[in-house]
């Protein structure tokens, strides 16, 4: 039996700054996971990924990342995505410093 589709966001790195960005439902990019478009349908996911990848002047290496939907919006399910939306643990740099 195929595995059930889990909610996803499209994410990648910004071309110029290199930092983590997320795709929104208005075809723009946000630096805040809370504002990302949460995709719950597999077919939609592929279409949205293609739409994101077509913005080659904005994003590098776009891919689908698992999230879980909470009251506060999408939250990462894997620690790697949690580090990506936060920043490194040894210095107060990256996203955590920009919030």
């Amino acid at each position: 039996m195929p595995r059930a589709f889990t909610p996803k966001v499209v994410t990648g790195n910004a071309l110029l700054e290199g930092d983590v960005i997320y795709f929104t439902d208005s075809d723009s990019w946000t630096r805040n996971l809370k504002d990302a478009e949460v995709i719950t349908d597999e077919a939609v996911a592929q279409v949205r990924l293609l739409a994101a990848e077509s913005q080659a002047a904005e994003v590098v290496g776009a891919y689908l990342a698992d999230v879980k939907v909470t009251e506060d919006g999408p939250e990462p399910t894997h620690f790697r995505e949690d580090f990506r939306r936060t920043g490194p643990s040894n210095y107060f740099h990256g996203k955590q410093a920009e919030a």
Binding site: E17, V20, H93, G94
Partner: peptide, 11 residues
């Protein structure tokens, strides 16, 4: 070729 990677949070 010029040593520039793209990593988790930045180049």
């Amino acid at each position: 070729m010029n040593g520039l990677y793209l990593q988790l949070h930045a180049y």
